[in-house]
């Protein structure tokens, strides 16, 4: 469980990243955070693992109070909180396996890390993580040799190798093409459900957020302005969050620049997955077709 109580973040340059955030995220939830650029989405996520220290209020993660000052406590916390980044943040010159083993750092003695001599158990954990994202056969390839979608899967495997309670994802699919974005989100959702991990994801694309998240948090100017289940996050509500009317680009992840070749696979998978997800969660199906239709109108 993650609890924000009146949390403020003021950056060293005086910019207020978060102001008075109150949130409770319970175990096993899949939360999407939406908002325009600069709304404080990244700051919110980075506060949870202390990459950005909060300056006022209280933040507890898994029952322990977050202390951004204590380095050892931070490391302990980070060992249980994995993070996925927009630009994957892999070390491209080393093997996929070694990248995944980075996730084992907190559980590996320093001398082993320095020599690059990992325990067999840790390697096994890394292989299992790679299996979960389906690229175990690439284990000894250089990370740079992989495609964007595969690299983001390696990043997910790196997080899984930590055996995390929480996964934070900062725009995890923003640099992927729409079909790949859906595949990666689907993987993340599946793994999150299998392992009961709490997942907090920043999103630009509304329909991705609606398709995969249980709960949507809307942010504007460092504050939470909407917080509710996905079914309540209607276009009207999101327009309120954005303070402007939605455009095609806000909603669409599928139909922006997708070639005809992609159509048979992408919408099909997309149709299958959210239904399964939402059946499991007992939530109302958010019409995926509707935003698409809207887009068509918006364009013409």
């Amino acid at each position: 469980m993650i609890t924000f109580e009146n949390v403020d973040v003021v950056y060293p340059n005086g910019f207020k990243g978060l102001s008075g955030v109150d949130l409770t995220i319970s175990r096993g939830e899949f939360v999407a955070i939406v908002g325009l650029s600069g709304a404080g989405k990244s700051t919110l996520i980075r506060t949870i693992n202390g990459l950005v220290p909060y300056t006022a209020g209280t933040l507890t993660v898994g029952g322990t109070l977050m202390d951004p000052k204590s380095k050892s406590k931070l490391r302990q916390l980070r060992s249980r909180v994995g993070m996925i980044f927009q630009s994957f943040n892999l070390v491209t010159r080393i093997s996929v396996l070694n990248n995944v083993l980075t996730g084992r750092s907190a559980f590996t003695p320093t001398w082993r890390s320095l020599l690059g001599w990992y325990r067999a158990e840790d390697k096994e954990i890394a292989f299992q993580s790679l299996e979960r994202v389906g690229i175990v056969d690439k284990a000894y390839n250089r990370a740079s040799a992989l495609s964007g979608g595969q690299q983001q899967r390696v990043a997910i495997a790196r997080v899984l190798a930590q055996d995390p309670e929480v996964i934070l994802a900062d725009e995890p699919v923003a640099s992927l093409d729409p079909p790949t974005a859906h595949q990666v989100m689907r993987d993340l959702r599946r793994i999150q459900q299998d392992l009961g991990i709490t997942c907090i994801v920043n999103m630009h694309h509304l329909d991705l957020a609606r398709s995969y998240a249980d709960r949507i948090i809307g942010m504007r100017a460092g504050s939470v302005v909407f917080d509710g289940p996905t079914s309540e996050a209607t276009d009207a509500v999101i327009e309120e969050v954005y303070q402007r009317s939605l455009t095609a680009e806000d909603v669409a992840a599928v139909d922006v620049a997708v070639s005809l070749d992609d159509l048979p696979t992408a919408p099909e998978q997309e149709a299958a997955e959210p239904t399964a997800t939402q059946a499991a969660d007992g939530q109302a199906q958010q019409p995926v077709a509707a935003p698409g239709g809207e887009t068509e109108q918006g364009r013409t």
């Binding site: 693992n49 931070l74 993070m83 980075t102 750092s105 320093t110 930590q162």
Partner: peptide, 23 residues
């Protein structure tokens, strides 16, 4: 990026330098 990732994974300074900087 990789440095931030190593930090986020709970690596200490030496591990971070070895894993994310040295390569």
């Amino acid at each position: 990026g990789p440095i931030e990732a190593a930090d986020a994974a709970g690596a200490n300074l030496l591990q971070r330098d070895r894993i994310a900087v040295l390569p």
